[in-house]
């Protein structure tokens, strides 16, 4: 087959990642590779360790052991856990992005929509107001927020708009890897659908790689190429998303899949 191996360079490689809260297990021995353009979903019920895993990968929590290797723009894999804090924070506003479940955790609620979206640009040195504003307008459009809302604060936005604003704020600097923690959680179903469609389009268009944590199987079905199922801190099953959902092998995954109400 032709050009099947074109993107063989790993973007993110997680190896043996474990985190304990005292005697309690957060997550144990998680290993996987993520390739450029791939979207991986992590599903499991509350307390399964999926959020712990995400926060360990994103550098918000310090794991007890393991490695989180990320390919820099030079292509070399570097352990982000061993990076100095300035390096890691720089990564956090350039190549990485993090979309929080609650938009207010990822937004500055007392700063206008335009300021929120422009912040990452200013953080990496943009000093031309006109250009920053132009970038903000462009991104608000891409997440379907009307240009005339640019000077409104997020407090005046609906939950769905806040979440879209958070996404614009994260993606404006063209990150290569996005971590998402329940991006559609707490939103109305109709709002969720719009957000999912938007995310899917952006992922395709920008060739984004993403790790999405959710308990909503419909979300991963639509967005994720691959799936990891977690239970009690362990990855019990992983594979191609539709394969894991349609032909689950592990008892827990079978339970999870069969528990979804049919509409």
């Amino acid at each position: 087959m032709k050009d099947m191996t074109q993107d063989t360079d790993v973007l993110l490689s997680v190896r043996g990642l474990s985190k304990f809260y005292g005697a309690r297990i957060g997550c144990t021995e998680v290993s996987f590779d993520l390739f450029p353009g791939e979207v991986m979903g992590i599903v499991g019920e509350s307390g399964s360790g999926k959020s712990t895993l995400l926060n360990c990968m994103a550098g918000h929590l310090a794991p007890d052991c393991g490695e989180v290797l990320f390919a820099g723009r030079d292509g070399d894999l570097q352990d982000t856990l061993k990076m100095s804090e300035p390096e890691r924070r720089m990564l956090g506003r350039t190549d990485w992005a993090f979309v929080h479940q609650h938009a207010r955790d990822g937004l500055r609620m007392n700063v206008s929509a335009g300021g929120n979206v422009g912040e990452r640009l200013m953080a990496v040195g943009a000093r031309h107001y006109g250009a920053i504003r132009e970038g903000a307008v462009d991104w608000l459009g891409r997440v379907e927020i009307a240009e005339d809302r640019i000077d409104d604060r997020p407090t005046a936005f609906s939950g769905g708009m806040q979440q879209r604003l958070q996404i614009a704020r994260n993606l404006i600097t063209g990150p290569r890897l996005v971590f998402m923690d329940e991006p559609t959680g707490g939103l109305d179903v109709s709002v969720q659908a719009r957000l999912l469609d938007l995310l899917r389009g952006l992922v395709r268009e920008m060739g984004l790689s993403a790790v999405i944590v959710t308990h909503d199987l419909a979300v991963v079905r639509l967005l994720a190429d691959r799936l990891m199922v977690m239970k009690d801190g362990l990855v019990v099953e992983s594979g191609l998303t539709d394969q894991v959902l349609d032909d689950p092998q592990h008892g827990y995954t079978q339970l999870l899949v069969s528990s979804v109400l049919q509409v």
Binding site: E85, P86, R89, R108, V111, R120, A123
Partner: peptide
């Protein structure tokens, strides 16, 4: 303090941006 130590001053310009936009 962390922002000072790492010279992360983008936020300062956010304040000026807000001024101009308002």
């Amino acid at each position: 303090r962390k922002m000072h130590s790492l010279e992360e001053y983008g936020l300062m310009h956010v304040k000026l941006y807000e001024d101009i936009s308002q």
